[in-house]
């Protein structure tokens, strides 16, 4: 490592921030009544925490561009997976024909023994 190690004081400061953000997100979810904003806010706070952990605990702030690129590649491909799958789920209801909206209805399992495994926790 070419640079100085991050000091314990910085780590402590980041840690306190992380705890505060955790408390905030719990508070907002249980007492906040954010309605439609609940999910974006919760994920936004999680992302903020991730950035803090990544930059300081994982030393990304001192990393070379290659490391950042690898992290971003992982995130990018995740976004691709979510977004393109979403194009399917999002637009399924646009067609009103009953044949195409929703999943096919196969309801009769051919194999017996369904539900014979106790509480299913085996």
């Amino acid at each position: 490592m070419a640079h100085k190690p991050i000091s314990p004081v910085t780590y402590g400061f980041i840690y306190v921030l992380l705890l505060l953000l955790t408390a905030l997100t719990v508070y907002l979810a249980t007492q906040g009544h954010l309605g439609v904003w609940e999910i974006p806010v919760a994920l936004g706070i999680a992302t903020a925490k991730t950035v803090l952990v990544g930059l300081y605990f994982m030393h990304l702030i001192h990393s070379n561009r290659l490391t950042i690129l690898i992290v971003l590649a992982g995130v990018l491909f995740l976004v691709i997976m979510v977004m393109l799958t979403l194009t399917d789920y999002w637009t399924r209801s646009w067609l009103t024909s009953p044949q195409v909206s929703g999943a096919p209805s196969i309801t009769q399992p051919l194999r017996a023994g369904h539900g014979s495994s106790g509480d299913g926790r085996s």
Binding site: L84, T87, D88, Y89, W90, T91, R92, W94, L95, V100, G102, A103, P104
Partner: peptide, 8 residues
């Protein structure tokens, strides 16, 4: 030809 949305 699965039930994927035609828009997708």
């Amino acid at each position: 030809v699965s039930s994927q949305s035609p828009y997708a």
